[in-house]
Design a protein around this nucleic acid. Structure first.
Lengths: 185, 185
DNA sequence: ACATTGTCTTTACACTGTCAAGTTGGGGGC
DNA sequence: GCCCCCAACTTGACAGTGTAAAGACAATGT
């Protein structure tokens, strides 16, 4: 039995590992509980059930997602060309989807769920990308550009993740940079 | 009991209705069987198990998906501006994702599966979009443009489907046309 | 010291996918 | 016509799942 009070976090971590190692089908209340060394009903107690646990895992996923994006942004020296910053961050977006497929899918599957914490986590990533776009268009509103950029990036991430887009061969990521440049104008 | 030989199609239809009416969680071997009026082991017999049935449903989904895209294309008069054709077809893409969320998710979840029939269905949609792009760029290869266009469209479809992208308000589909025009150049 | 609250376990139940064995019914060889 | 055989389908059983109720137990507040 773990130290009192830290079980929820431990369960989320167990769920994340299970998700990475065995995919979506491995994500089971009982297996998570077993990995955390507690009974199978303990997770349901803390999260209200499997759906609640999934939301919690997705929320945590969006936080590390945000962390990855911010790390990519901060890895560049101050004063870097804003387009280069956006490109670097968005490639981190695509790489996240590729390296953590099951988690990425779970995250966006849970999006319709109305949960304050999940909503806040998503919003944080939204604002990060919005600021990057705002740096590129000083004369007009950033939201339309952000919408297009986000969609393009998410689409590349989704198609590349399944390695199924051009049936057979992988997505040419080099085309992403050109497409992004066209959108930015 | 249905007429001999048509049970597989009947099971796929039952699965599609179940998917539309109750979402991914309603898709169960036993419930599909009950809806088709057969025993719970009948679907497993024909499709080898739940995964096989899901692949069959996804394959059928891609066929009606292709039908929707082709219908949108053919609804325009001959000689229409190629860009307008591409736009119309892609809006049908986005609308399909919105109106059949569970099926759309299942389809792209099954993409990594290596199944000849599924692969062929996906390829058909691929070629349809490729031809539309080829009509727009006569001087250069169409695949890079197709990749970008497909990703942009798929991204809009995915974000719009969850109505979760700009957290709270729906995706502005008007921005899609502008973005597409930028990509086409 | 005592009651209370929150954490966790135990137990039970309905539901799921899969497998093995049985039943049935129709089509082809004789 | 008859029979065999095979495919379609059913039946029954099993392990695994989520959920709910009820209990055990320790920490905490009074």
């Amino acid at each position: 039995m773990p130290t009192r009070g830290e079980l929820p976090q431990l369960l989320i971590q167990a769920g994340l590992s299970l998700l990475d190692e065995e995919g979506a089908e491995g994500l089971t209340l009982r297996r998570i509980a077993a990995r955390a060394g507690v009974s199978h009903a303990a997770p349901a107690h803390h999260f209200g059930g499997l759906p609640g646990l999934k939301v919690a895992i997705a929320t945590h996923g969006f936080q590390t997602f945000l962390g990855d994006l911010a790390a990519a942004r901060d890895s560049l020296p101050q004063g870097t060309d804003p387009f280069q910053v956006l490109l670097t961050v968005n490639l981190a977006y695509i790489r996240f989807a590729e390296s953590r497929r099951a988690l990425f899918r779970l995250m966006f599957d849970q999006l319709p769920t109305q949960d304050p914490d999940l909503h806040k986590s998503v919003l944080a990533s939204y604002f990060l990308l919005k600021d990057l776009c705002a740096a590129l268009v000083t004369d007009r509103p950033a939201v339309p550009l952000l919408t297009a950029v986000w969609a393009l990036t998410h689409g590349y991430a989704a198609l590349n993740m399944d390695s199924a887009y051009p049936p057979g061969s992988p997505v040419q990521l080099s085309t992403y940079e050109d497409a992004l440049r066209l959108l930015v104008g």
